[in-house]
Design a protein around this nucleic acid. Sequence first.
DNA 1: TTAAACTCTATAGTAACTATAGAGTCAAGT
DNA 2: ACTTGACTCTATAGTTACTATAGAGTTTAA
Lengths: 138, 138
Amino acid sequence: MKISEMSKRSGCSIQAIRYYEKEGLITAPARTEGNFRLYGSEEIERLSFINNCRALDLSLSEIKHLLELQSLPSTPCETVNVMIDDHLNVIETRLADLQKLQSSLRKLRPRCNSKRSIDQCGILEALSPNSNHSVSDG
Amino acid sequence: MKISEMSKRSGCSIQAIRYYEKEGLITAPARTEGNFRLYGSEEIERLSFINNCRALDLSLSEIKHLLELQSLPSTPCETVNVMIDDHLNVIETRLADLQKLQSSLRKLRPRCNSKRSIDQCGILEALSPNSNHSVSDG
DNA sequence: TTAAACTCTATAGTAACTATAGAGTCAAGT
DNA sequence: ACTTGACTCTATAGTTACTATAGAGTTTAA
Ligand SMILES: [Zn+2]
Ligand SMILES: [Zn+2]
Ligand SMILES: [Zn+2]
Ligand SMILES: [Zn+2]
């Protein structure tokens, strides 16, 4: 199978597949005489695995680590579990930050209605320093 | 005042200030004989404004637009209000995506406890294709 | 006068790709 | 045999908003 079929079957874009190869997440496949990449059906699994991990926003370096672990089947898997815990923490921190942002924006928005001029815009006023309606205020 | 004091007063890093100048968000200031940037106290306002906008995660291009509008004081401000609405929508979309991620990760995590080997890791199994415990399931 | 602290420009790096250019390959139809 | 279209190749630039660094010059204080 050539790269475009592999792309469809694994869910990874063609460029992503080539990129993963360059980054060492998958090994370079055989080539046709014309230098086209040629994959066997085994490789679908690995690329699909990568794709699943990306869907959880695991970084390529984390995924690489997981792939390395998979080649050591009898190792204890605690590293994996810890990685997911850590990753979840990162996501939750990001989530908390975004929620603060959302809250700030929701407070900011009603400072202005649609019928003012720029120099009377309550939003711009709140964004300006020396304002007692600061963005970061409770 | 030289750049490091401006940095402290505005909350922008020195590199960020130079970057904003290069990107045209602030105009190039006067220079000393020795070629050091020299700012007056007026410029604090503009940089603080930029900093406040960045705290809301507005992009530099959005901020640039806001700064341009500020030089047209009698224009209607609806553009500003719409920008905040749009930006809030972007943030809320991102938030919803992150919440899905969080939920997936929270479901994934308890598939494995600490005492298994890699080839029996419930997390790795769920991340693998052909698994009936897929990451994207319910 | 020399050392510390500051500033300058220019450049590389960040993450994970996407998009593009320019060239070659392959299969089908005429 | 020839051409067309679809596919693939490599290499490179672009994305965002900076941070970090190198190597050089400036300023200030001891
Ligand atoms: Zn992570
Ligand atoms: Zn307004
Ligand atoms: Zn925005
Ligand atoms: Zn496990």
